[in-house]
Amino acid sequence: MATFNLKINGTTKTVDVDPTTPLLWVLRDHLDMVGTKFGCGIASCGACTIHLDDTAMRACVLPISAVGDQKITTIEGLSESGDHPVQKAWLEHDVPQCGYCQAGQIMTAAALLKENANPSDEEIESAMNGNLCRCGTYTRIKAAVKTAAKNM
């Protein structure tokens, strides 16, 4: 066990956990932040995508000891009242079916748009390719990313 002071969504949280614990389980089990989802545990589905500083990362394979003082942003902290342009675009296009993967999709899309304000179709597909959607909302996601890009 070790103590970690984590900068999450603009606040500092202190946890006492095994240093190998992935950030995903620190969020879900220790901090009651369940918006970040468990899908595969091997960084293959993207359901657990969060931002470390401004980079999209898979929280399921990121040991808490590797976080250091980098800023963590989760779906709960992407915007104060759920009105980030990506979140709004997701609602406008009524993207979710089951909804389980969508937090991860939104976090990946938000990171992409921060880096590339006007991505091409190919750039969107490439950035989003690591995020699985089992219900098949891919075409809607792409449309929503384009809408978000316009409104950023």
């Binding site: 932040m33 369940v34 918006g35 970040t36 989760t74 779906i75 709960e76 992407l78 759920g82 979140q87 997701w90 609602l91 009524d94 979710p96 909804g99 969508q102 937090a103 939104i106």
Partner: peptide, 12 residues
């Protein structure tokens, strides 16, 4: 639109 949409996109 999906009645749970807002909850889904904010990680509730």
């Amino acid at each position: 639109n999906n009645v749970d949409g807002q909850k889904i996109v904010t990680g509730k």
